[in-house]
């Protein structure tokens, strides 16, 4: 079994970081993982995406035409990648910034105002953690408690961020319910 998750949005939205946390959690769960970033001439505000491949056997191609799931943090990402998602996958739409929907009936569309929730919690910068948590809660791609642990580990040594991110994880989980 192999599944792939595409995270996409603006540079600065924490796209690469959320992918890394998921890859870490999946590795801890015993899966083979690969995290593949986009690395064009990137800049804050430009587009950014990364792909996380999770598999129970050695991962072959790091190049994937059709990912299983998509976490879209802005509109251009949704428009570009939603048509590529495999039927049956989860498409998370950050509805705070995306006024449209994915337009597909063969996927599980998860509408989460991630940026709005993050703002309410005190920082727009944790929108990625809200979205990641909502995605994991819905897709069950890894155990949710493991995700919680890996988010904490990611911010190890930055104690002031941990509480905020812990809240983001919880609010994300609720948003997916």
């Amino acid at each position: 079994m192999q599944s792939e998750v595409m995270f996409a949005g603006f540079g600065g939205q924490g796209i690469l970081a959320s992918g890394k946390i998921l890859a870490h959690a999946a590795m801890e769960a015993g899966y083979e993982v690969a995290w593949i970033p986009s690395y064009g001439p990137e800049m804050r505000g430009g587009t950014a995406y990364c792909l996380v491949v999770i598999s129970d056997r050695p991962i072959g191609s790091p190049v994937i035409k059709n990912p299983q799931h998509l976490v879209a943090m802005n509109r251009p990402s949704l428009e570009k990648f939603a048509p590529m998602v495999k039927p049956g996958g989860v498409i998370l739409v950050n509805s705070s910034l995306i006024p449209i929907r994915c337009g597909r009936t063969d996927v599980d569309e998860l509408i989460v105002p991630a940026t709005g929730i993050a703002n309410d919690l005190g920082s727009v910068r944790i929108a990625n953690i809200v979205a990641l948590s909502a995605f994991v809660a819905r897709s069950k791609i890894v155990d949710f408690e493991l995700l919680r642990r890996c988010v904490n580990e990611e911010f190890h040594g930055k104690e002031s961020f941990i509480e905020m991110n812990t809240n983001a994880v919880e609010q994300g989980r609720k948003a997916a319910a």
Binding site: K20, A23, M27, E32, V33, A34, W35, I36, P37, Y39, I59, P62
Partner: peptide
């Protein structure tokens, strides 16, 4: 190549 350098794996 660029992918080997940029990719994260365990």
């Amino acid at each position: 190549d660029g992918l080997i350098g940029q990719m994260m794996e365990p």
